[in-house]
Computed example of a mutant assay.
Amino acid sequence: MHPGPSATGSEPTPPLQRFLIAVLPVALVSFLGSLATMPNIPTWYAGLVKPGFTPPNWLFAPVWTLLYAMMAYALWRILALPKSTPDRAAAITTFFVQLALNSLWSWAFFGARSPLAGLVVILALIVAIVATIRAFWPLDRTAALLLVPYLAWVGYATALTGAVWYLNR
């Protein structure tokens, strides 16, 4: 017996499409950010005065890898909700706004070699991450909680960015 058609919008995003939407943009942001960051670490960044709470350079890659994986999984969970779920589309849009700001930070701070521009972008990023967590919360609390370590790390990165700007103005 063939099942009848389901209600329009009641299906989640299909698994392959979910993978493409959740994982590829996050991986792309990671890659694009590294294009701005990596060439500047041994040159421009190495010459900056940094605060005492600056972590060693080797720590950034594993932390960001874990955070990006958690971000992609959080979005994956939201995409698994039926398309007709109220506020699902807005939550997905909010996620992509914060993801764009995440990428922009690397280009502002490292690409433009401007701690001040990085500080402006990262402050907007914090607002966008909080908005994403708030948008995810009523839809999937696990997805929202997966973004909390990201928020904490970006909060720390904000203090670091502000200190670098202050020490090098």
Rank of each mutant, 00 (worst) to 15 (best):
P5R: 00
A7F: 04
T8C: 08
G9A: 13
S10F: 05
S10L: 03
E11G: 06
P12H: 11
P14A: 14
P14I: 07
P14H: 09
P15Q: 07
P15D: 10
Q17W: 11
Q17M: 15
L20D: 12
A22V: 11
A22Y: 03
P25V: 01
P25W: 00
P25G: 04
V29F: 01
L32M: 09
L35V: 09
T37V: 13
T37F: 07
M38P: 03
P39N: 15
P39M: 14
P39V: 14
P42V: 02
T43R: 14
W44Q: 12
W44C: 08
W44H: 12
A46T: 11
G47K: 01
G47D: 08
L48Q: 10
K50G: 08
P51L: 01
N57H: 13
W58E: 10
W58S: 14
F60N: 10
F60C: 04
A61M: 06
A61G: 10
P62N: 09
V63D: 04
T65W: 05
T65N: 09
L66I: 12
L67Y: 02
L67C: 02
A69F: 09
M70A: 15
M70P: 02
Y73W: 12
A74C: 03
A74M: 02
L75C: 08
W76D: 12
W76E: 08
R77T: 12
I78D: 06
I78T: 05
L79E: 06
L79D: 06
A80M: 05
A80C: 07
L81F: 05
L81V: 03
K83Y: 05
S84L: 07
T85F: 07
P86T: 08
P86E: 14
D87A: 14
R88I: 06
A91L: 07
I92Q: 03
I92W: 00
I92Y: 01
T94F: 00
T94E: 07
T94N: 00
F95T: 01
F96R: 02
F96W: 06
V97N: 04
L99K: 01
L99C: 03
L99A: 05
A100R: 01
L101W: 03
S103A: 15
L104V: 10
W105Q: 09
W105V: 07
W105K: 04
S106Y: 08
W107Y: 15
W107D: 13
A108D: 07
A108I: 01
F109T: 09
F110E: 09
G111F: 11
A112C: 08
P115H: 05
P115T: 05
L116Q: 13
A117L: 15
A117H: 12
A117N: 07
A117C: 10
V120S: 04
V120P: 06
I122M: 10
A124T: 01
A124L: 15
L125K: 02
V127S: 13
A128Q: 06
I129M: 07
I129T: 08
V130W: 06
T132Q: 04
R134V: 12
P138N: 06
D140F: 14
T142A: 10
A143Y: 10
L146A: 11
V148S: 11
Y150K: 07
L151A: 14
V154Y: 01
A157H: 00
T158C: 13
A159K: 00
L160W: 06
G162C: 10
A163Q: 15
A163K: 13
Y166R: 13
L167Q: 14
R169C: 03
